[in-house]
Nucleic acid binder design. Sequence first.
RNA 1: GUUCCCAUAGCUCAGUGGAUAGAGCGUUGGUCUCCGAAGCCAAAGGCCCAGGUUCGACUCCUGGUGGGAACACCA
Length: 591
Amino acid sequence: MSSLKEQLSQLTADAFVACGYDAKYGNVAVSQRRELADYQCNGALQAAKPYKKKPRDIAQEVAAKLSEDASFAEVSIAGPGFVNLRLSEQFLSSHINHMAGDENGRCGVPTSQEPLSIIVDYGGANIAKPLHVGHLRAAIIGESLKRLCVFLGHKTLGDVHLGDWGLQMGQIIMELERRNPDWVYFDASFEGEYPSESPVTIDDLQEIYPAASARSKSDPEAKAAAQQATSELQSGRRGYMALWQHFFDISVGDLKHNYSQLDVHFDLWLGESHTQPLVADMVQQLIDDGHAIYSDGALIVPVAEESDKKDMPPLMLVKSNESIGYGTTDLATLVQRMRDYDPDEILYVVDGRQQEHFKQVFRAAYNSGIVPESTKLEHNYFGTMNGKDRKPFKTREGDVMRLDDLIQMIMSKAEERLEEIDAAADYDATEKQEIARQVGIAALKFADLVNHRTGDYVFDLERFSSFEGRTGPYLLYAAVRTRSILRKAADQGLQAGDIIAAASDEERELQLKLLELTDLLRFASETRAPNHLCEYAYSLAGAFNRFYAQHHIINEENKAQQASWLGLSQLTVDVLVLVLDLLGISVPERM
RNA sequence: GUUCCCAUAGCUCAGUGGAUAGAGCGUUGGUCUCCGAAGCCAAAGGCCCAGGUUCGACUCCUGGUGGGAACACCA
């Protein structure tokens, strides 16, 4: 079954054709003037010029044709030539009951007719480096896009794509060598087995990395040593590899814990390092095909094009010190993804500051044939989360804030707030804790996702942890309160039934809002913009709250009416929970 | 310097070339003897500037102004 908008557009397009006009003018959209129409078509205005007619005359013809259709209660024309459509009760209730009757948990949303194979690359977490607020947006935007793709029926894999093969590895190795020169890992002549136990803990690494990074920045010799170590690691020096493996193992464990706190889950835990076996052949091929050339001692892939408005630097394939950077590993990752998955689309959910880098990688990939034209590569970039000074968010001390700390902060705020309003007072401690987590995560994620992906936004703990207005907790509240009504009704033996004609404008608006679901999901997916899911969830909750304020369900005496309202309430919760799930937000049973 | 992104209400943000530009916060005022008031209702308040394209521009184009970012051997 196609979406409501598609069906209405089809009917309208048929009317245009029947009147002798092109079908393309039949597109309809949700009306902005709800007192005038449910949906509207602006095609008559567009058709006026090519057909050399007055737009109102065209609108009149089309409207006359459309009003023969039982789908509409009223078809009118207004303004310069808008065709206003008001849906009939039969049309509305048949569609809303179809949604409510969906037993697959899809609320009537069909899966894609042309399922694609999609990879969403949205981690970018670094080995040996704690997740910080900079990783937050990638995680939650990427998770949402991935869930949306999965729900729409695409074969989708989320890849964390760890940063585990760059200079930071050499920096840490050299820092450790400086501190512990007698470790067996640094003895180049050692040929035995290395210890299976890691010599460092995750906490050690989190202290060592900033120190190593700072030293490398301030001391050119240290930097050269780190570059050398990186190069040796990448060529497979045994001791370094053994050490690196420890970093990797303990970091991945920590990262999985962090991400799962956020309800973010990856299908693939691959990193830059996993491309290592592919790099040599890829580089050779690029040389053989003439795509890679030497310049200043480095091997580069020129990617500039005639039409470029600025100088486009080449992709750095092999640095003059023999080491490789993330341009090379990103390219090799594409070799691997094409070989293993042959995807139709790869979506990179990465900070907007990487735009030039991805432009280079994509060009190099297409030009060299690593990726065929039929595979779409997209950099779905996002803006930064800033502090009130409009600079990337820092702690009060000026450090990068760890994601862990941020999550703790928002969770304890949630707990505080729950205490204040005396919610969940008599639940046991474990449930309370989990509710605080879900409320906190909902607050955090919604506050992020409600902003358009590409824009920067200002982090404001007070505002984010508020439970009033357009927030995650408001939506949880709306869903949980509705569930509570349904539970009460069930306790009294009341059953949801067929949804009948709306009893009020408020109820009609709710029904119409529910019917927008399929179109909304497609739009959010096409534009890769989860903020539309947020907008929808919020307006749906608002529509339900207005309906709720208008009608008293439990006390309703007309049983058919009551059953209908229960059905509508159930559908609303189902849709709300579904959309929140696509945002990566889970709803507690009660709170 | 060049290129990219951004500029909408006091603040934080939405807005698919269409009618009267929407929310939330904040402010002011209503609303619980009835399903959970984290709610609902109402008031006040806005598209950076100048051109252009279009029947129609917050939206597209050009040029300003103001802010942010990127600019081969970090990622």
